[in-house]
Design a protein around this nucleic acid. Structure first.
Lengths: 140, 140
DNA sequence: TATTGTTATACTCTATAACTATA
DNA sequence: TATAGTTATAGAGTATAACAATA
């Protein structure tokens, strides 16, 4: 594949993301979570308990979609919704211990997919890539 | 946002890709192409004429979806389908001059979105990011 | 009045299966 | 018989609008 240097990074990012979650969902066994569910669990693990609105904002998704995603995860027992006592309109979403467990095993799956996807990069280059991406994401 | 160092790069990539194309489609005026159409045009520009099957393979999309995408682009006059004379089952897809023009103006839109998205990175870091991503994508 | 979350609904994106025309 | 592309269709993914509960 020869995208060459178009000067445009975003199509490359988009392509890599697509390849990644396609590989993840393709490697899923019955009962495994989807890449969308993984994204939510990852966020909860990294940020701690969140209101649904926060999740909505971070993913740039409509609130109604987040409702559906959380319904799935709650039925699986991976997250919990509880009322915020200081503002009873809000639901605080937290990761359950079961959710943390599933997250870890999914990360194991993800690690091997990353290995395949990033095989052409040295370990140092992978760290650089991770650092740069983290810097972008945390700056927003 | 604090994804922190989970050691997992793919969720970051996924997040950035989503933010990028959302911004692109949000900045679209009536008549502008979508991010999916952009991806196809970019591929044709980088790789030259391709059979539909090649496009299908590169994007990891089902062939039936590529048909629809190309129908859109052909109606807009941005690509052309012609029979391969050596194998009349194949359609060779090529970028038209109009398509190249639209591609350029879309890249201009994309450039300003990239600037916003990558503002926390130095120019050298952006080049590094682009180089690493290119290396991954070209190695597949 | 404004905001959080929900439901109902429609539109976009993607995959599967059956078909055609070539090979 | 196998392959490139197409059509029809169903299933995810996503957005919009109207609503209930709370602020």
């Amino acid at each position: 594949m020869a995208w060459s240097r178009s000067g445009r990074t975003l199509p490359l990012v988009s392509y890599l993301a697509r390849a990644g979650w396609r590989a993840l969902d393709a490697s899923a066994q019955p009962g495994d979570i989807t890449h969308r569910q993984l994204l939510v669990l990852t966020l909860l693990k990294e940020r701690g308990d969140l209101a649904q609105q926060d999740i909505t904002h971070v993913f740039g998704l409509d609130a109604s979609n987040v409702v559906g995603l959380l319904n799935e995860l709650e039925e699986l027992g991976l997250v919990l919704r509880r009322r915020d006592h200081t503002d009873r309109r809000r639901h605080i979403v937290e990761l359950t211990s079961g959710g943390a467990l599933v997250l870890d095993s999914t990360f194991a799956r993800l690690a091997s997919i990353e290995d395949e996807l990033l095989f052409s990069l040295s370990m140092q280059e992978r760290e650089t890539l991770h650092r740069l991406l983290l810097q972008i994401v945390t700056s927003r």
